Structures are given as C-alpha cells and as structure tokens.
Simulated scan of single mutants.
Amino acid sequence: MELLEKYFEKMLWGSRFMVLAAVISSLLLSLALFVITAIDVGSLMAHLGDYLNATIEARKVLKIEMVAHAVGAIDGFLLATILLIFSLGLYELFISDIDEAQNSKRSSKVLVINSLDDLKSKLAKVILMILVVTFFEVSLSMAFTDALDLVYFAFGILMVSLALYFSHRAEH
C-alpha cells in the first residue's frame, strides 16, 4: 500500500507540469499582443502626416481619433503585460523559481509572486488599469444628448475614482 501511495503522490506532484501549457500559451499570446500593438502604434505614427496636412476643422476630428488609437494602444500593451505577469507567476508558483530573475540586480517587484493571492492581486491591478483606460477611450467618443447622459458619465467617473481609491488603499 505504501508503494502505491508513493507512486500516486509522485504522479500527483508531476501533474503540476500541466501548467506549462498555460505558461507557454500565455507567453505566446503576450508576445503576439505586443507585436500587434506595436504595429498599430507604427500605423498611427504613419498617419501623423495626415494630421499635419489637415485643415483646422479636420484636425479636431483626427485629434480625437488619434488619441483614441493611442489609448487603445495603451490598452493593448496592458493586456500583453497581464498575460506576461500571469505566465511568469504561474511558472514560479507551480514549476520553479526563475533563477535569472532571482540573480538579477534589476529584479522587478512586479514579478515577485509568492502565492496565488499575490498573482491575483497583481493581475487585478492591471485589469483595473485596463478598465480605466477603456472607460477613457469610450468617453472620448461619447455624445451627450441630454442631461441624464452627463449624469451617467459623472457616475462612471465616480465609480472609476472609487475603484482606484480602494485598490490603492488595499495596498496599505
């Protein structure tokens, strides 16, 4: 019976390597999002000439569009960062400490993950930032038709502010 228990526990401990599928997938998706977002930023920069050559009236419209695209790029980079943190965190929690990070003088506190709660907390902060950026991006294209729209917008700003306040307060 002890032999069976020992074999089962060895198999059970080895099953943690299934997490490598999530680690590799998240890492590849993060890389893809970094590349896609960088290409989008390059495309935005290519249209800078359109802005410079536009009339004053056209610049107003282009400015809003360009700011929205820039905010979208921030969103893309934040999402890629979430996936990178998730990938590194899962690896450190289930497989092994990353020796290169441990020995590095430039070791980032963002990537120090000691438990699932640490990982969840770090991911929640980045997700909150994505929501804030998305709210800002959507607010650029909002059209206020009546006073109630303005009240809803103000309520949204209040909710974002409270979320940021409570997330900051939870750190201390």
Score class of each variant (00 low, 15 high):
residue 7 Y to D: 09
residue 8 F to P: 00
residue 8 F to Y: 13
residue 11 M to C: 07
residue 16 R to I: 08
residue 17 F to Q: 01
residue 21 A to H: 05
residue 21 A to M: 06
residue 21 A to E: 06
residue 22 A to Q: 06
residue 24 I to M: 01
residue 24 I to Q: 02
residue 25 S to E: 10
residue 27 L to P: 08
residue 28 L to S: 12
residue 29 L to G: 09
residue 30 S to T: 05
residue 31 L to G: 15
residue 32 A to S: 11
residue 32 A to Q: 07
residue 32 A to G: 08
residue 33 L to R: 11
residue 33 L to Q: 11
residue 34 F to T: 13
residue 34 F to N: 14
residue 35 V to N: 03
residue 36 I to M: 12
residue 36 I to W: 13
residue 39 I to E: 03
residue 39 I to A: 05
residue 42 G to Y: 01
residue 43 S to M: 08
residue 44 L to K: 04
residue 45 M to E: 08
residue 46 A to D: 15
residue 47 H to A: 07
residue 47 H to R: 15
residue 47 H to L: 10
residue 50 D to R: 11
residue 51 Y to M: 10
residue 52 L to H: 10
residue 53 N to T: 08
residue 56 I to A: 12
residue 58 A to V: 03
residue 58 A to S: 02
residue 58 A to M: 00
residue 58 A to Q: 01
residue 58 A to T: 02
residue 60 K to M: 13
residue 62 L to F: 10
residue 63 K to I: 03
residue 63 K to G: 01
residue 63 K to A: 07
residue 66 M to A: 01
residue 67 V to D: 01
residue 68 A to V: 03
residue 68 A to C: 05
residue 69 H to K: 13
residue 70 A to N: 00
residue 70 A to V: 00
residue 71 V to G: 00
residue 72 G to H: 04
residue 76 G to W: 00
residue 76 G to Y: 02
residue 78 L to H: 10
residue 78 L to Y: 06
residue 80 A to G: 15
residue 81 T to K: 11
residue 81 T to R: 10
residue 84 L to R: 05
residue 85 I to P: 02
residue 86 F to I: 06
residue 86 F to T: 03
residue 90 L to A: 02
residue 91 Y to T: 09
residue 92 E to F: 01
residue 93 L to N: 06
residue 94 F to Y: 15
residue 95 I to G: 10
residue 95 I to P: 11
residue 96 S to C: 06
residue 98 I to L: 15
residue 99 D to F: 09
residue 100 E to N: 04
residue 100 E to F: 12
residue 100 E to C: 01
residue 100 E to P: 00
residue 101 A to N: 06
residue 102 Q to R: 15
residue 106 R to A: 13
residue 106 R to E: 14
residue 107 S to E: 08
residue 108 S to R: 14
residue 108 S to D: 13
residue 109 K to E: 14
residue 112 V to T: 12
residue 114 N to E: 15
residue 115 S to N: 13
residue 115 S to F: 07
residue 117 D to E: 12
residue 119 L to K: 03
residue 120 K to A: 06
residue 121 S to T: 14
residue 123 L to C: 13
residue 123 L to T: 06
residue 124 A to D: 12
residue 128 L to V: 00
residue 130 I to Y: 07
residue 131 L to G: 07
residue 131 L to I: 10
residue 131 L to Y: 05
residue 132 V to S: 05
residue 132 V to L: 12
residue 136 F to H: 04
residue 139 S to M: 00
residue 139 S to A: 05
residue 139 S to R: 01
residue 140 L to V: 02
residue 141 S to G: 07
residue 141 S to R: 03
residue 142 M to F: 07
residue 145 T to Q: 08
residue 145 T to P: 01
residue 146 D to G: 08
residue 146 D to V: 06
residue 146 D to P: 05
residue 146 D to W: 07
residue 147 A to M: 11
residue 147 A to C: 03
residue 148 L to D: 07
residue 148 L to S: 10
